[in-house]
């Protein structure tokens, strides 16, 4: 019995370049990540509860360019940033391992390096929405609300640079850490839980050890304290920690390097024999 379905036809057109495919890969990934109801919820709460009050505060010249105000923004947002990282980042690579679709990318002409670049870009851009964009919005509102004089911009542009540097560091850390955990664990739920747990547990352990032996260096165990310590340096604030701010910076760089190594190992060294 012959089939009655449509026939299979050929197509002889020109294929799109790898650059265009990559850009589609990234925008498609970004759209999917941001369409998640949990991601939308965390974004709405973060912007509603923390960013918007800061935007209104930035209209007040007294707070407009206050470094402490910009620095404390990250501290206030840390819970939401972690939640957002767990919600958005966990599935970025793990879901491709979960449903085993990762093999298909490599049979569609994508190299492993291209795949890793695309996924890391999706993570970086998604995280930027809570780590870099709020700062730019607040600074822009502060500028618009002021007299927009060149002197004012020249005197305060370092606050923006400091904020962007800290935002960039937080984004890089979250991007590599979530990608690393996502590829190592290969399971969306475990990856999400572990991202959240790493931030909380590291802080808990550091607090417990600090209370036991009183050694300030124990704070180097806490990921968020490390970021805060680097932040105090960037925003030219007094160092409340009992160690040079270079140490936490090195810890963060080390975690970024280790996480990148995990992604490299899983994607490049481990055979994808699914």
């Amino acid at each position: 019995m012959s089939r009655f379905y449509a026939r299979y036809s050929s197509w002889a057109g020109l294929r799109t370049s790898m650059g265009k495919r990559m850009s589609f890969f990234i925008t498609h990934g970004l759209r999917r990540a941001l369409r998640s109801k949990w991601a939308i919820l965390v974004l709405v709460i973060t912007y509603g509860l923390i960013v918007m009050p800061r935007v209104f505060a930035a209209m007040n010249p007294f707070f407009a360019f206050d470094p402490l105000s910009y620095f404390s923004l990250y501290d206030e947002m840390q819970l939401f940033i972690m939640l957002y990282a767990a919600v958005i980042g966990a599935g970025i690579i793990a879901s491709d391992f979960n449903d085993k679709s990762i093999v298909l990318y490599f049979t569609k002409g994508f190299s492993k390096a291209g795949y890793a670049f695309g996924k890391l870009s999706v993570l970086f851009l998604s995280f930027s929405l809570v780590t870099i964009l709020p700062l730019i919005v607040i600074f822009a509102v502060a500028l618009i609300s002021s007299d927009l004089g060149l002197d004012l911009i020249r005197d305060n542009i370092w606050v923006l640079a400091a904020g962007l540097s800290l935002g960039l560091l937080v984004t890089l850390l979250l991007t590599t850490l979530t990608a690393g955990l996502s590829s190592l664990l290969g399971d969306v739920r475990y990856a999400g839980a572990s991202i959240f747990a790493i931030f909380f547990l590291s802080r808990l352990v550091s607090e417990i050890l600090l209370s036991i032996n009183g050694n300030e260096h124990m704070k180097l165990i806490s990921l968020w304290d490390n970021l805060s310590a680097v932040g105090t340096y960037l925003f030219r604030l007094d160092n409340p920690y009992g160690f040079p701010q270079l140490y936490p910076f090195l810890v963060i760089v080390g975690i970024i390097a280790l996480s990148s190594l995990a992604v490299y190992y899983i994607l490049f060294k481990k055979e994808l024999s699914l």
Partner: peptide, 21 residues
């Protein structure tokens, strides 16, 4: 190897775009 969260149309056209269509 199929992502359960996508529709058949969404997935196949996505694969088509990645293949250079």
């Amino acid at each position: 190897c199929l992502p359960g969260g996508l529709t058949a149309v969404g997935f196949v056209s996505y694969m088509g775009r990645l293949s250079g269509l």
